[in-house]
Computed example of a mutant assay.
Amino acid sequence: MKPEDFNPQDYLPQGCYPWPDLINPNIAQMEIDMNNWIDHDYTYLSEKARRKYKKMGFHLCTARMIPKASYEQTIPCNRFVLNFVVMDDQMEFATIEEKKRDCDRAIEILNGSTPFPYENGIFQHLALIRDEYKSFMPSEWLERFIENLSRCYKYGVQEETPFKLAKRIPSLEYFLILREYSVNMYPYLYWADIEVNFVLPKYIEEHPVIQRLRALTSRIEAWQNDFYSLRKELGLDTELMNLILVLQKGQNISLEEAVTEAKHIHDQDVSEFVALHENLPDFGSYQQQVYDYVISLGSILQGLNTHYIKDTERYLAGGEGFAWPEINNDTKI
């Protein structure tokens, strides 16, 4: 298989999952909001970078992940997609120390700290995201959201850095754990609570089956991302943290063989998710709510897959659609 012959839709076509494929009806206003934030609050980025972010269609990503949310509920979610992606992109080549500094500051703000006037739009928006979520979600939910974001920063963003900077791949066994966190999916999974208007009680939240379903959701999204981003990453020696490339290089196999094995890993995770959903433990009076909650996790995966196919220029071949960090930018993240 030649790189130019690879089409992720041959493996993950639209509708390939058994969950609803919906979109929020407020997409027009969500796009207006997103473009206004990019133009007015992310001005530390170059005009070229801001144009690219507009073409990534993040408002559509949000709309597909939370199709049943009210417009007011979409606002902090829409902000968060832009915020988290820009922060992650612009830290692409940063050191562990730099990433830890900025990630720790982000968590401080979400936990109540006030951004300094000199801090850029990423940090200013984190305070808005925090306050907007607090207006309609309980404090327990926000604590869970922040804790899972912190885990992604610590066990994903920071732990993958030595491999990125050294341009080397980890072992497959370690990568399968690392990628679950470095895809930065865990905080998004708490949007399922918003969708079903139900915050899981603590004993259900901590149940191993629910924890496993969240892990599988994060893993499946990681494999989706690796399929759709492969064309961007092929030929770039800085882009190796991709399941397909880890398989290819780590096992010294062809690209075609690596794609086949990656699809097998993806399919196994989907099968386990579906089996667990259909065989949930007894949660008593909450049984239907938990069942619907898991459907919302699945809808997030379905929506993300459709977003990759229909909405975004982020993963064009060779990284042409990606907003790479701007070396001459003198404003810290």
Score class of each variant (00 low, 15 high):
residue 175 F to Q: 00
residue 232 K to M: 06
residue 196 V to E: 05
residue 216 L to N: 13
residue 141 W to Y: 07
residue 129 I to T: 06
residue 138 P to E: 10
residue 184 N to K: 03
residue 193 D to W: 05
residue 248 Q to P: 07
residue 174 Y to Q: 08
residue 142 L to K: 08
residue 164 K to E: 11
residue 251 Q to K: 14
residue 244 I to Y: 01
residue 218 S to V: 02
residue 209 V to I: 15
residue 212 R to N: 08
residue 218 S to P: 04
residue 229 S to Q: 10
residue 132 E to N: 09
residue 157 V to M: 14
residue 202 K to F: 05
residue 250 G to K: 05
residue 228 Y to S: 03
residue 176 L to G: 04
residue 197 N to P: 02
residue 196 V to F: 04
residue 188 Y to M: 12
residue 163 F to R: 01
residue 187 P to W: 08
residue 225 N to D: 11
residue 244 I to H: 01
residue 191 W to Y: 11
residue 243 L to H: 09
residue 163 F to M: 01
residue 240 L to Y: 03
residue 223 W to F: 15
residue 217 T to M: 05
residue 247 L to T: 14
residue 219 R to A: 13
residue 249 K to Q: 15
residue 153 Y to H: 14
residue 140 E to M: 11
residue 199 V to F: 08
residue 187 P to K: 10
residue 180 E to G: 11
residue 209 V to C: 07
residue 219 R to Y: 13
residue 185 M to F: 03
residue 174 Y to F: 12
residue 145 F to T: 01
residue 208 P to R: 05
residue 134 K to M: 11
residue 154 K to H: 13
residue 156 G to D: 04
residue 164 K to F: 02
residue 228 Y to W: 15
residue 193 D to N: 11
residue 150 S to Q: 15
residue 229 S to F: 06
residue 189 L to Q: 13
residue 195 E to H: 09
residue 128 L to Q: 13
residue 174 Y to R: 08
residue 199 V to K: 09
residue 183 V to K: 00
residue 198 F to P: 00
residue 206 E to I: 09
residue 196 V to N: 02
residue 174 Y to T: 09
residue 152 C to Y: 00
residue 175 F to C: 05
residue 246 V to E: 03
residue 229 S to W: 07
residue 242 N to K: 10
residue 257 E to F: 00
residue 223 W to Y: 15
residue 252 N to C: 05
residue 202 K to P: 06
residue 135 S to P: 01
residue 256 E to H: 10
residue 243 L to G: 08
residue 150 S to K: 15
residue 126 L to R: 03
residue 234 L to Q: 12
residue 204 I to E: 03
residue 170 P to N: 08
residue 198 F to Y: 09
residue 248 Q to N: 09
residue 245 L to N: 10
residue 160 E to Q: 04
residue 190 Y to N: 12
residue 167 K to L: 04
residue 255 L to Q: 12
residue 232 K to R: 15
residue 169 I to F: 00
residue 231 R to D: 02
residue 208 P to I: 12
residue 151 R to F: 06
residue 173 E to H: 10
residue 193 D to K: 04
residue 152 C to K: 01
residue 148 N to K: 14
residue 138 P to H: 09
residue 188 Y to S: 12
residue 245 L to T: 15
residue 152 C to V: 04
residue 168 R to M: 14
residue 220 I to H: 05
residue 146 I to Q: 02
residue 229 S to G: 09
residue 245 L to H: 04
residue 216 L to M: 10
residue 213 L to S: 07
residue 238 T to M: 00
residue 169 I to H: 00
residue 231 R to Q: 12
residue 160 E to N: 00
residue 144 R to S: 12
residue 205 E to Q: 14
residue 202 K to I: 13
residue 240 L to M: 08
residue 230 L to V: 09
residue 242 N to P: 11
residue 196 V to H: 01
residue 136 F to W: 07
residue 254 S to G: 13
residue 202 K to L: 15
residue 161 T to P: 00
residue 239 E to V: 00
residue 220 I to T: 02
residue 165 L to T: 08
residue 169 I to G: 00
residue 209 V to N: 06
residue 181 Y to W: 09
residue 131 D to V: 10
residue 152 C to A: 04
residue 136 F to R: 06
residue 227 F to L: 06
residue 248 Q to R: 15
residue 186 Y to S: 10
residue 242 N to Q: 12
residue 136 F to A: 06
residue 254 S to H: 05
residue 234 L to R: 06
residue 199 V to D: 10
residue 184 N to W: 02
residue 167 K to F: 01
residue 241 M to H: 09
residue 237 D to P: 12
residue 153 Y to N: 15
residue 219 R to N: 14
residue 219 R to H: 13
